[in-house]
Design a protein around this nucleic acid. Structure first.
Length: 204
DNA sequence: TGCCCGATTAACT
DNA sequence: GTTAATCGGGCAA
């Protein structure tokens, strides 16, 4: 029956979803829906980090700031970036792996007027295209560091079907800059930056 | 304690 | 293309 699918219940992402390799979870988050207090949209760009990765906050061991990364999967790790912005991560793998996915961009679908007010811009493309912008639009701060991802104010829903995921090098880092651990929704206009023209596309 | 630098962004030239 | 804003972590002294 045409249109039936729109009534299908979207599956919520649970802790077990995050208890896998960060390099599996990251591409599987592309196309998923993130809501924070009812405001959010479809994830279109993420990056993977791991404690063996020189670019990761957890690379030099546990500190007060990154402690959440060393805990169990399925929790939010929020940190201050450049003393100005907040950045949101999802902790993955097993406790001690200190692996997390940085949430870099989403396509806004819920709470657009709220996001516009918080961000001070009207263009939808500028609301959540970048980790700092996204946290400002969703009003994610240090107060949410350590919160479970399967309970309010978070709501996470699995993507409804397969998507084309584009894979490329991460942005804004100097260490391990060659690692292709940035994942995006192929063709999305809500990416924080385009992927290289030669970037690989995979179906997930 | 002091210094350097960063998983960024917006406003410049 | 370049740069200021702004501050905590990490490391040298």
């Amino acid at each position: 029956m045409p249109g039936l699918r729109r009534w299908a219940v979207q599956q919520r992402l649970t802790r077990s979803f995050f208890g896998r390799s960060v390099h599996e979870v990251a591409p599987d988050l592309i196309g998923a829906t993130l809501l924070f207090d009812g405001v959010g949209g479809v994830l279109v760009e993420v990056e993977a980090y791991h404690h063996t990765d020189p670019a990761a906050h957890s690379f030099r061991g546990r500190t007060e700031r990154n402690a959440i990364m060393f805990g169990p999967p399925g929790y939010a790790y929020v940190y201050r970036s450049y003393g100005i912005h907040w950045c949101l991560n999802f902790v993955c793998e097993a406790a001690g792996s200190a692996a997390a996915v940085l949430i870099r961009a989403l396509e806004p679908t819920a709470g657009l007027s709220t996001m516009r007010r918080r961000r001070g811009v009207t263009e939808a493309r500028l609301l959540c295209s970048g980790p700092g912008r996204l946290c400002e639009a969703l009003r994610v701060t240090r107060a949410h560091n350590g919160l479970a991802l399967d309970a309010p104010p978070f709501e996470l829903f699995a993507r409804p079907g397969e998507v084309d995921v584009v894979v490329g090098p991460r942005i804004g880092i100097t260490k391990a800059a060659d690692k292709p651990w940035r994942y995006g929704l192929n063709g999305s206009r809500f990416l924080s930056k385009p992927f290289p023209a030669a970037a690989t596309v995979i179906n997930r």
